[in-house]
Simulated scan of single mutants.
Amino acid sequence: MHTFLVILGGFVLLALTVFGARTMDRTFSAALPLYLVVWFVLAALNMGVGVYHAGYSFMEELPIFIVVFGLPAATAVILARKF
Score class of each variant (00 low, 15 high):
Met1Val: 10
His2Ser: 13
His2Pro: 02
Thr3Asp: 15
Thr3Trp: 09
Leu5Gly: 08
Val6Ser: 07
Val6Leu: 13
Val6Cys: 08
Val6Asn: 08
Ile7Phe: 05
Ile7Cys: 06
Leu8Ala: 14
Leu8Asp: 02
Gly9Ala: 07
Gly10Asp: 10
Gly10Tyr: 07
Gly10Ile: 04
Phe11Pro: 05
Val12Asp: 08
Val12Thr: 11
Val12Leu: 13
Leu13Ser: 11
Leu14Tyr: 00
Ala15Gly: 06
Leu16Gly: 06
Thr17Ala: 13
Thr17Cys: 09
Ala21Val: 05
Arg22Asn: 15
Arg22Thr: 04
Arg22His: 12
Arg22Ile: 00
Arg22Ala: 09
Met24Thr: 11
Arg26Ile: 07
Thr27Met: 04
Ser29Ile: 06
Ala30Phe: 11
Leu32Ser: 09
Pro33Asn: 07
Val37Ser: 09
Val37Cys: 01
Val37His: 02
Val38Asn: 02
Trp39Val: 01
Phe40Ser: 12
Leu42Gly: 02
Leu42Ile: 12
Leu42Val: 13
Ala43Asp: 07
Ala43Phe: 01
Leu45Gln: 01
Met47His: 06
Gly48Tyr: 01
Val49Asp: 12
Gly50Asn: 14
Val51Asn: 04
Val51Cys: 03
His53Phe: 14
His53Trp: 14
Ala54Tyr: 15
Gly55Ser: 02
Tyr56Glu: 15
Ser57Leu: 15
Ser57Arg: 14
Phe58Leu: 15
Glu60Trp: 14
Glu61Asp: 12
Leu62Gln: 07
Leu62Ile: 13
Ile64Leu: 14
Ile64Asp: 13
Ile66Pro: 01
Ile66Cys: 15
Val67Thr: 14
Val67Trp: 07
Val67Ala: 15
Phe69Gly: 05
Gly70Met: 10
Gly70Phe: 05
Leu71Lys: 05
Ala74Tyr: 05
Thr75Ser: 08
Ala76Phe: 05
Ala76Ser: 06
Val77His: 00
Ile78Glu: 01
Ile78His: 00
Ala80Ser: 11
Arg81Met: 03
Arg81Gln: 10
Arg81Tyr: 04
Arg81Ile: 03
Lys82Met: 10
Lys82Ala: 10
Lys82Gly: 04
Phe83Val: 01
